[in-house]
Design a protein around this nucleic acid. Structure first.
Lengths: 212, 212
DNA sequence: GTCTATAGACGGATAGAC
DNA sequence: GTCTATCCGTCTATAGAC
């Protein structure tokens, strides 16, 4: 088999594992389920991706790193354009939220599952993931925290952090439940309109973070 | 052994299992871990509580049913007192949030773990739990949805439900991460002040739900 | 690189003595 | 009711043929 087929095989494992991890969690997913779904031999996973933990970490990293890089890049650009004045709140929230909602909308490439999995991995504390996640989010949270803070300088730090926690929680929950939003609301809320969902989220976050 | 000791034994299993399920999830917890932590023989779990799924369901139900009953009772009382006019928003939110935050504060009786577990069980979709959870929350969501709706009658249903989803997500996330809030904020936010956390949540939810 | 076969450990659940 | 011992299935991971 040539390189093309090979790459496709490895990719199929990642896609299959991503969907299963998102749906059933790390402990609820077996390597056998993954290889079966990917139409790959069981031994291929360990050969190419190492053990189960490495595979999981690799899947998360592959999605998360470009997202956080893009966030930092867009924040830097926005700050440059603002020329010293605070970047508008809605712009900040948009920069944070957009990559995840867009990932979710990229259904053909498994983005739905990837977005759900990211949300899930941030909620359920897997021992072997904590160090990676802390390091991965430290720069983003630090820089965005500062930028957001300029819109409510008088707010006590404790209140500010609680609000931030509520907003983050709302976003993770939205990502984790978007796929069944239609069922949960008896058809009133669509689950396939990523743009509308994001607009509502930005509106919500601005209202929460932008009040003294 | 008398009845007293027996009850204590069964109770110890529930407490131990609750903590482990909260920390490691359903699939991440083994019956052996549970019995070891509870200082109980392995076979005792199956004998008294049936299989693993029954045990999990029993733990959730034991905590959730009184909470939802209390919510419905308090809502009915508040509506009676309001004499036809809408129950104030902060009262509604308080009725919904209070039982969970108080459960969390009841550390000696394992309430912290129970609250985390409830949050977790509402996020991760265990197949054998969905029917129970849907039935358990249907009356609460229906009645409170109506009561909340009176404060924003002009708001399109879709927007209302999205806001509700954000608020619920923020609350579940708060419950799931309260225990590490201090670490996540470098000591700025305390994790043992349930009253302050609840007050901030109510303020947050009122702001979100009470704007046209 | 890819497969089969299997090692080796651990899981849930139960039989049967006490 | 409580315990020990164990069955039986499934899991991850790897050895070794091709």
């Amino acid at each position: 088999m040539g390189d093309t087929k090979l790459k496709e095989t490895l990719e199929r494992v990642l896609i299959a594992a991503e969907a299963l991890f998102a749906e059933n969690g790390y402990d609820g997913t077996t390597l056998r389920q993954i290889t079966q779904r990917a139409n790959v031999n069981l031994a291929a996973v360990n050969y190419h991706h190492g053990d189960k933990e490495s595979l999981y970490l690799e899947i998360i990293r592959r999605r998360l790193q470009p997202i956080n890089e893009s966030r930092l890049k867009n924040l830097a650009a926005a700050e440059l354009g603002a020329e010293g004045s605070p970047v508008p709140l809605d712009v900040l929230v948009e920069i944070m939220a957009r990559p995840l909602f867009e990932l979710y909308a990229d259904a053909d490439h498994g983005g739905r599952h990837a977005a759900r999995l990211i949300g899930r991995s941030l909620v359920e504390p897997l021992p072997f993931m904590t160090k990676f996640l802390a390091a991965e989010f430290q720069p983003v949270m630090s820089r965005f925290g500062q930028a957001l803070r300029r819109h409510a300088p008088a707010l006590p730090p404790e209140d500010f952090l609680w609000r931030l926690s509520f907003v983050v929680g709302a976003m993770l929950h939205a990502l984790a439940t978007l796929h069944r939003m239609k069922d949960l609301t008896r058809g009133i809320c669509r689950d396939n309109d990523q743009v509308a969902a994001r607009a509502r989220f930005v509106q919500f976050a601005v209202r929460v973070l932008g009040t003294p």
